[in-house]
Design a protein around this nucleic acid. Structure first.
Lengths: 149, 149
DNA sequence: GCATAAAGTTAAGCGCGCTTAACTAAAAAG
DNA sequence: CTTTTTAGTTAAGCGCGCTTAACTTTATGC
C-alpha cells in the first residue's frame, strides 16, 4: 500500500495538468474552426477508427440514429466528411473524412502534440529518456487494460 | 534531432490514448450528472482555482458576461454553487462550490484518477517507480513552461 | 462631485444538439 | 414469400448556450 500512496500524488498532479491542458485546447480548437464539440468528436472518431456507418456513430456517442444522421448532414454540408453508399449493404452509408476534414483533424492533433513536445524538448537528454520509457510502459499497460475489459 | 524523432512516437501514442480516455470520461460523467459541459467546466474551475467573480468566469471561458451570469444561475438553482456578495466590492458576486458541488467534482475527478491508478497498479514495482519519476519530471516541466509564458 | 468605467442582471432571439414519431428501403429470418 | 429487423431520413418540438441590447448599482478617475 505504501507504494501506491507514493505514486498516487504525482499521478494525480500530472493528470490535473494534462487533462486541463488538453480539454481547454480542444475546446479552443473547436471554437476556432467553427465546429461544435459533437461535430469535432465525430471527425476525430473517423480519423482514429476509420470510415464507418451512421449506426456506429449513434452507438459510440450514445445518441439516437436521428441525431447522428443530422450531425453527419452538417459535416457533409461543410465539406468535412463524405457520405457514400456501402457496396455490401445498400441500406447503409459509409462516412469517411474528406481531404479537408482529414487536414483539419490533423491540425488539431498536431497542436495538441506540440505542447507535449515542447515540454520534452526542455528536458535533459537523461530525463527525456526516462519519460520516453515511462510513456511506453503506460501506453502498453493501457492497451492491456483495454483488451482485458 | 534523432533524439526528438525517437521520443515523438511514444509521446503521441500516449497522448492519443490518454486524451481519448479523459475526454470520453468527462463527457460521460457530465451526462450522468445531468450537467452540460459548460456547467461542469465552471464547477471544475471553482474546484481548482477557488471562488471567483462572474467576470473571471466570463473571461476564462471567453463568453459574454450575460452567458456567465445565466450559467451561474442554473448552477445556483441546482444547488451546486453559492453566489454571495463580495465584501470588498459591492458590485461583485463571489461564486463558490457548495458542499454538494464540491462532492460532485470530487467524484468526477476521482473517477478519472482511478483509471490511471488501475493502470499503475498493474505494473511491476520497477516500472511503477519509473513512471512515478517520469510523471514528476513532466509535471515540473509543465509548471516551468507555464511560468515562462 | 461628476463623468466614466466596471460588475452583474434581464429579456429577446438564434442556432444547435437532441429526442420522439412516422416513414422508406433493403436485408435477414421464418 | 412473407414477416421482421436493421439502416437511415425527415419533421416537429424542446432545452440549452450564446449573443446583443438595455438597464441598475457600485467603484474610479479627473
Amino acid at each position: 500500500m505504501t507504494k501506491l500512496v507514493q505514486i498516487t500524488q504525482p499521478l494525480r498532479e500530472w493528470m490535473d495538468v494534462f487533462m486541463h491542458r488538453s480539454m481547454r485546447g480542444w475546446a479552443q480548437f473547436a471554437k476556432s474552426t467553427g465546429l461544435s464539440m459533437p461535430q469535432l468528436s465525430i471527425l476525430m472518431q473517423l480519423h482514429y477508427k476509420g470510415a464507418c456507418g451512421l449506426s456506429e456513430i449513434s452507438e459510440r456517442f450514445d445518441v439516437s440514429a436521428a441525431a447522428a444522421s443530422q450531425l453527419a448532414d452538417k459535416l457533409v454540408q461543410s465539406g468535412h466528411i463524405e457520405r457514400t453508399e456501402d457496396p455490401n449493404d445498400r441500406r447503409a452509408k459509409l462516412l469517411r473524412l474528406s481531404p479537408s476534414g482529414e487536414e483539419l483533424v490533423n491540425d488539431g492533433v498536431e497542436e495538441r502534440y506540440r505542447w507535449m513536445e515542447d515540454l520534452s524538448t526542455g528536458l535533459s537528454a537523461d530525463d527525456r529518456a526516462k519519460v520516453l520509457e515511462a510513456l511506453t510502459i503506460l501506453t502498453r499497460a493501457a492497451q492491456q487494460l483495454n483488451d482485458k475489459k
